[in-house]
Design a protein around this nucleic acid. Structure first.
Lengths: 144, 144
DNA sequence: TCCTTTATGACAGGTTCCTTACATGGACAG
DNA sequence: CTGTCCATGTAAGGAACCTGTCATAAAGGA
């Protein structure tokens, strides 16, 4: 009866949900002058202060080259600073400015609200199931 | 005990799973000379032959401008053709070429394999749960 | 008829992400 | 010490997405 064809496919549903979440977050972050990509970098940087560009790229699951683009915007916005000294190897530590910390905190709030809105009406069990299932899917697709 | 912080957040898990799926599909589609975006357009076009550019954009959940970029590649690859006559309004119908149909069929196969790999080990009930939960999340985020 | 709305197409510009490629600093085997 | 390997930084170019803007064609109301 419920033969909808393409619309049932898990890949389609996954893409739709992620797209909706991304757009909702971007919309709420716009007044703060932040994008989702920038928010992800700030968050990674908050969890690992002084991380190198390459380290941040790994945390954000993008290439070093992609991260450079985002970092460029964050630098000109004054939210992060990149050390000029290398202190050992080639890696140059990146740190949050106080403005960056403020923006991150504000972004945490609005993103948390969007996530809560996404989960509206779901029980604790269902939320746990969703997390477990998504985790299993990611694991199944493996690194390579 | 299982305090992992950021890694538990539903948005993070959703992003991770979708990224893994996208990358896996792109990897398998590369030998066919197709990207996921192009595959999505071909699929939408197969379900609604002769659709306009704007109609395809709606089906693929992107803007008309974004779709133009993808359509441009598909045209030069000879997988679709765009009518030069408008037949009424401004909309110009797009149609799959036989080469486009062949590429789409091959793409269906490899994408189906990747989706099945993603769901490995999940029971029918779990797959249904995943679909229902993703659908609920998308609904909760609404159009705006 | 005229004007407004709506839908479509086109173009400019910018962001985020990728692949490919190259240069350099550190570590390690020979 | 030298050569190889690995991690990092840098750069160019393209793909796919966005917003903003404008022009035009169809439809509908005043």
């Amino acid at each position: 009866m419920s033969q909808v064809g393409t619309l049932d496919r898990p890949g389609y549903l996954l893409k739709r949900a992620q797209l909706a979440l991304r757009q909702a977050c971007d919309e709420q972050l716009r007044p703060l002058g932040l994008s989702m990509s920038q928010y992800a970098v700030l968050q990674a940087l908050d969890e690992q202060p002084g991380a190198s560009s390459a380290e941040l790229a790994r945390r954000c699951f993008v290439t070093r080259q992609s991260l450079r683009d985002v970092l460029s915007g964050l630098k000109t916005a004054g939210l992060v600073t990149v050390a000029t000294e290398t202190s050992g190897g080639r890696a140059r530590p990146v740190t949050l400015t106080s403005s960056g910390e403020g923006h991150l905190e504000a972004a945490h709030t609005v993103v948390g609200e969007v996530e809560e809105r996404m989960l509206t009406g779901l029980t604790g069990t269902q939320r746990r199931q969703l997390a477990d299932l998504l985790w299993a899917c990611t694991e199944n697709l493996g690194q390579h």
